[in-house]
Amino acid sequence: MPQLAEDALGVALEVQQIATASACSVAHRAKALPEPLRRLVPFEASWLALLDPDSRTFVPLVIDGYDERIHRRLGGPDAVAEVELAGLDPTCPARRIRALPVPAHEVRSRADYLWPAGFREALGVGLFTADDRHVGVLGLNTDTIAHPTDEARDLIGLLASTIAAALDPARTVTVAARAVRGAPGGGVLTRAGSVLPLTGLPDHPLLSPGSTLLPVVAGLAEGGSQYASFLCPYLNRSVLALRRITVLGCADEPPHFLCAAIVVSDVGERRGLTVTQLELLGMLLAEWPDGRVAAALDVSERELTGYIDHAASRLGTPHRGVALIRAFTRGLDIPPGLGDPA
């Protein structure tokens, strides 16, 4: 089809421009993406959604041209299973209805919802990032079996990873996380408490299920913190070790299931502070009263004063308030709840 060949480069460039528009939100990019694709597929309805891995549902960013029944179907729990049934994966991101690996009548959305509504063909596109994370799905429905063509399917399939990168909810924090030096691990905490991979960083034992670090990070994010840095102890081959934790809050935009990125890195300069002194500073920064701090450390309040003075001297000041400011800005503390590594 000559016209498609003429439009292909222009469509690809326009999709790339939308995907790389750094000042735009995910919702804004999602709204802009279907329009250039219309030059390849004259669709009557479109659906662009992100996968919420906690609820196993798709969160629509764009859903246009469908009736209310189809709206509910696409936002329900069966939609994810049907996308998987369609065989959309990184090796074959785009499929038409007539090329499904299963009979079309076995896909209920097609048989019971889309066909009765007048849709005769469709292009389903799985959105996978360069590291094969499934971030969402694109659906384009037409009222004729003539579209989408083979050429349009193939081109949109080639653009699938670019569209996925444009809509990746972890995109912004991933870029910020890469700026943290000496990072041997990282992940993205969801609001349900699970940890998703952070592109470019391996997993770390501190991010495993049941880790005491995860509720601490969740509490910081729920409190509105967009950035935090502190130290966390853990047992590395039965030897007590410390790692620096950097927390980067995720923007509150669709699909709203991400909480914060967690980057695990080398401790850096500790100013000679002991683990007990770091725990003490963490309790004081958490605004624990002196009596509670003394009880947690199993010392008298009089002895606690000496502990605080010693910690302050390590931070180069005789003043408690100045010491706490320096500990906070330099991330030299162990927050309460992290003192007993498993």
Results as ranks from 00 to 15, higher is better:
G223M: 10
P202W: 04
T162L: 12
I156H: 05
T199F: 15
C232A: 15
L214C: 11
V267P: 02
P202R: 10
A179V: 01
S211C: 11
E222D: 15
L155P: 10
D203P: 10
P169D: 08
L158G: 10
T172G: 03
V180I: 12
Y227F: 14
G185C: 02
G268W: 03
I245H: 04
P169M: 02
A160E: 00
S208R: 03
E269D: 05
N236V: 04
R270C: 14
L198C: 05
P202D: 13
L273E: 02
C250Q: 07
E269N: 05
E222M: 14
S225Y: 11
L258G: 11
L158M: 06
F257N: 05
E222R: 14
P215F: 01
A261E: 01
E253H: 08
A192H: 01
E269S: 07
L235E: 08
P205F: 14
L155H: 08
A221Q: 11
A192R: 03
T212Q: 02
P205W: 13
E269G: 02
Y227I: 02
T174D: 07
D203T: 13
R181W: 08
T274A: 15
R237G: 15
T172N: 03
G200R: 01
V239T: 09
T246D: 03
I245S: 08
L207E: 10
F230C: 10
R191L: 12
A241P: 10
L189Y: 00
R237M: 15
F257L: 08
E269A: 11
L189M: 07
R244P: 13
A179Q: 05
S194T: 10
N236I: 03
P209V: 10
V264R: 05
V264Y: 03
A177R: 00
V180G: 07
L155A: 14
S208A: 15
C232W: 02
D168G: 09
T162R: 04
P255A: 13
R244A: 09
A176E: 01
L231G: 14
A177Y: 05
P233Q: 14
T199S: 13
P215T: 00
T212A: 06
G223A: 15
A176F: 07
A218C: 09
F257A: 09
G185A: 06
D168L: 00
Y234G: 14
G268K: 00
G182M: 05
V180K: 04
P169Q: 02
D203N: 11
F257M: 11
N236T: 13
S238F: 12
P254S: 10
A160R: 00
C232P: 06
S194L: 05
S229F: 09
L214W: 00
G193W: 08
A176S: 08
V175I: 06
V263C: 13
S161A: 07
V188M: 04
L201V: 09
H256T: 01
A261V: 04
A183Q: 00
G249L: 06
P184Y: 08
A166R: 01
L231I: 11
A179D: 07
C250I: 00
